[in-house]
Design a protein around this nucleic acid. Structure first.
Length: 656
DNA sequence: GAAATCATACTTTTT
DNA sequence: GTATGATTTC
């Protein structure tokens, strides 16, 4: 079995007793190894339904299971438990939450919902005080959510988190504590869980004495991307290990890029000692050419703290990566298109190429250019769909169909009605639908119909009914109503294949559509399209040709993430992850001038001069070719005439 | 007193 | 294009 494995990989696959840590550098065949190990475990007698596979995204889980299926057969892959920590937590809690006193029909809040609920309970606390001190000095709701999430995911007391990470909020500690307590109580009374609750309750469950039989549920736990797990997740893993499960963790500290989500590399560094685990290191890179590896090794060599690990290519020679200087962002877009098409003509399909960038909006201009040249593409990353106001409105209405106690959903939906604002909505929301206020009849009727339709005709029919209610409201509220209503139709279509409304909603929150248009289903599988992706969403992917754009200070590293050395190091690893996606060709684009500013008025012709990304040091650039525009743009020369004065004198002349 | 409307500011990455 | 704050309207 598994004839194609290397000795390193085979050691990881065959490891038989005790916990195992696989330190797998980029492109070293991690997925192959993990899938083979899964198949080998089954072959050696493990029951598939007693294997748990924890991955970082749904996509990673299904890819892994697909590979395992090829080795071990369909029946095995179908029975294995797989998904993200949050998705598995959800599943475990629906099934066994009663042991904790948790009603299994809870609703899951996303991050924005959690922030909204925090804002709501805080405003209530102040209404009681009668104290209307300005909100100006208070933490924003998103900040509150971030603080609480950090407290929970790192298991660190509030005072420490404030002092360390949010010092400007430290003086609000008392108020924050009260808000967080009220928030927790409100979540319980309205039957909702936020993302962190899924982990927290799962962790409580596996550690609780009442759940002893549950601990026996898994014999093997396989965890991918272990460098991106947090302290709370490590606690869950430890509890399962204590219950008798054997843990296999796979990861690479050089690719840790989720510190902002409270992941900590300590998990992977401490794993061997904490679990008494055997370690296997994979450092043979089967993905990239030696020339590309020389560049990526040079990038990561400059990282401050890291585990020395130099990757060796097993492949033959290839062309050097290139740094492409572009006079501005428009030139960058043109340069990308030109190289994409050139590769295409040489037989590299669009699907074998990707454009990667730090922030979702970095591809805006490029997308225009691709559209103009009729190059099809699919974009991954950026979460706009579920965040759009009209989509949230519909989703909240759907939540009410399932959980009439969901106060936050009432609060939001009621405000859509003419004449109802925050104050009235707050009064009505806790009544769970026993509402008798002017204008609410149509809403209640729609909800009642939807509830019946959901039971008898399925989720699509229920969504359709609420869409009918929502449509005139959207038309009144927004200028571009047609496009927004089309989004609701997409939801409707996507729900058609869902087994129930509950499942549809939960999966929407736990696994939101990752590409634009994913909801409508994969358009035409045989069509060829270019991949555009944020670097975060590109994790685990690989392409023959990779184009990394916006390699300028301020974009990568993002100037939102240069507050301390740790953040900057994470940005460096982000570049490393992006570059190591490439198999044969790698281009790094550096726009020297770009438009800055906010709002549309600025967008027209303000610009500023960019510095090449600080991570493209001389040592790195020495491993690369140079392409593109060699011109170094100096500061703009002052004009010798003053056009503005000419305009003024022209106007003055007309006024005579 | 509450809702609607207008004005202004900011926009990282994601379960 | 959204989120928040100030102002006007009901």
């Amino acid at each position: 079995m598994f004839p194609s494995l290397t000795d390193q990989q085979r050691a990881a696959v065959d490891h038989a007793s005790g916990h195992l840590l696989i330190v797998a550098g980029a492109g070293t065949g991690k997925t192959t190894t993990l899938a083979s190990r899964l198949a080998a475990l089954v072959e050696r007698g493990a029951a598939p339904e007693r294997i748990l596979l924890l991955t970082f995204s749904r996509r990673a889980a299904s890819e892994l299971l697909r590979r395992a299926e090829a080795l071990a057969g369909h029946d095995v892959a179908r029975r294995v438990w797989g998904g993200t920590f949050h998705a598995v937590g959800n599943r475990v809690l629906r099934r066994h939450g009663r042991l904790l006193g948790l009603d299994p029909d809870f609703t899951v809040l996303d991050q924005a919902d959690a922030a909204d609920l925090l804002a709501l309970v805080r405003s209530e606390l102040h209404a009681h005080d009668g104290e209307q001190a300005s909100d100006r000095r208070r933490a924003k709701k998103d900040t509150m959510a971030a603080i609480l999430s950090r407290v929970i995911n790192t298991a660190t007391p509030l005072s420490k988190v404030l002092h360390h990470t949010f010092p400007w909020c430290a003086e609000q500690q008392v108020e924050l504590k009260a808000t967080f307590e009220a928030y927790t109580a409100r979540k319980r009374s309205t039957l909702v869980l936020d993302y962190d609750d899924l982990l927290l309750c799962w962790s409580a469950l596996v550690r609780s004495p009442v759940a002893a039989p549950l601990l026996d549920q898994f014999d093997h736990v396989l965890i991918d991307e272990y460098q991106d797990t947090n302290a709370l997740q490590a606690e869950i893993v430890a509890a399962m290990a204590g219950g008798g499960a054997t843990i296999t963790a796979v990861g690479d500290d050089a690719q840790a890029i989720y510190g902002f989500r409270n992941a900590t590399p300590r998990n992977i560094l401490d794993f061997p000692e904490r679990f008494g685990a055997h370690i296997v290191v994979l450092d043979r890179n089967h993905r990239s050419t030696p020339a590309i590896l020389a560049t990526t090794n040079a990038v990561i060599a400059e990282a401050e703290h890291r585990h020395e690990k130099v990757l060796w290519s097993t492949r033959g020679d290839g062309p050097q990566p290139a740094m492409v200087l572009c006079s501005d962002e428009g030139a960058q877009s043109a340069a990308v298109c030109a190289r994409v098409l050139e590769q295409h003509e040489r037989g590299v399909a669009l699907r074998s190429q990707a454009v990667l960038f730090r922030a979702a909006h970095h591809s805006d201009l490029l997308e225009l250019e691709l559209g103009a040249r009729r190059i099809p593409y699919v974009k991954f990353g950026g979460l706009r769909f579920l965040e759009a106001a009209h989509v949230k409105d519909l989703v909240c209405a759907l939540r009410l169909v399932i959980n009439p106690c969901d106060e936050l959903a009432w609060f939001r939906v009621l405000q859509l009605i003419d004449g109802i604002g925050p104050a009235t909505a707050r009064k009505l929301a806790p009544l769970n639908g026993a509402i008798d206020a002017p204008g609410t009849d149509e809403l209640l009727e729609a909800l009642e119909d939807a509830r019946r339709l959901a039971q008898h005709e399925g989720p699509s029919a229920a969504i359709e009914r609420l869409r009918v209610w929502l449509e005139p409201i959207i038309e009144r509220h927004h200028a571009n109503a047609a496009a927004r209503i089309a989004d609701l139709d997409a939801l409707c279509i996507a729900a058609a294949s869902a087994p129930s409304l509950e499942r549809f909603l939960t999966e929407l929150v736990l696994d939101p559509p990752s590409s634009t248009g994913e909801l409508a289903g994969p358009p035409h599988l045989d069509d060829d399209w270019l991949t555009l992706s944020t670097i975060h969403s590109a994790k685990g992917g690989e392409w023959d040709a990779v184009h990394v754009i916006h390699l300028a200070d301020g974009s990568l590293p993002s100037d939102m993430a240069t507050g301390n050395d740790e953040e900057i190091e994470e940005e460096r690893r982000l570049l490393y992850v992006a570059m190591t996606r490439a198999r044969d060709r790698l281009w790094c684009y550096v726009p020297l001038r770009y438009h800055v500013g906010l709002g549309r008025a600025w967008w027209s012709d303000r610009h500023s001069y960019a510095q090449r990304s600080r991570f493209l040091t001389d040592a790195v650039v020495a491993t690369m070719d140079r392409e593109g525009d060699p011109i170094v743009i100096a500061d703009p020369a002052p004009l010798d005439t003053a056009p503005l004065a000419e305009v003024d004198s022209m106007v003055a002349a007309l006024l005579d």
